[in-house]
Design a protein around this nucleic acid. Sequence first.
DNA 1: AACCAGGGAAGAT
DNA 2: ATCTTCCATGGT
Length: 287
Amino acid sequence: MWEEKVVIDGPYHFDLALERLAKDPLNKVDKDKRLIRVPIYKEEPEVADVHAVGTTDKPGFIIRGKSPHSKQQVMKKITSVFQWDLPLFEIHQHFTKTTLNNIFEKHFGTPIVLEFSLYPALIRPIIHQQVNMSFAISLTEQFAKTFGFEIEGVPFFPSPETVARLNVGELRNLRFSQRKAEYIINLSKMIVSGELKLSELAEKPDNEVIKELVRIRGIGPWTAQSFLLFGLGRKNLFPMADIGLQNAIKKLYLLDRKPTYEEMENYSKDWHPYLSYASFYLWRSIE
DNA sequence: AACCAGGGAAGAT
DNA sequence: ATCTTCCATGGT
């Protein structure tokens, strides 16, 4: 058992981040205690606790882990997942000059918290394709709880090896569509065989990652962009196929219909190179 | 009951 | 290359 305190530059509104994370039952969040229990995916999976002790302007955290042996690794993972190394001030500064000014002020300091591991970061958007949010969240929960495992009550996604051995029927029983079941099992098989190496994607530029992922059946532009945004923490993604983004823009600009791709392209011109944050805050604006 | 949902593949033009 | 249709299931 070890404990470490981290102080970072503000703004960083941890409570708003927890509020969003709490919508997913797989996340073990205690908003009153300002605490989240984090699954750490590594050789020997373990759980770490992240506990906020500071304010939005002076953010501080206490991290508690199990084995001193893996402390370095866990701290590095948590720092990157919670994006503690990215100053949000500069990003807010950028958006004050744009049409997203009000939205950014309303959700001031909300960080993008990444997926806890790359494999879930790819599986989750596939599950989320085309179905409403509550059903998607329910599917994902059943998937993780049925085929994954738990440590100290914290759910972990199954490994690619486990999923690769499933048959379509086992996922159909959880109300997955035939196609989605095929997508997920085949993708897992590709990871197991080494045909797809997620950790290597992390070294490549956005456009190459998209090019490589889109060749895989079941992964289109939206899913690849989502992986880059929430899996790799890339800063400049704007998934225009996303219904939520379309609705958020419709609301922001008071349109009587969903925007065309061309309109979205035009609106987003001032938001580079932080399109991921524009996307994220637009999603927040309709939640 | 009808329409929509944090898309993508397959088929048609 | 770009547009249209089908997939498939639950929520509102």
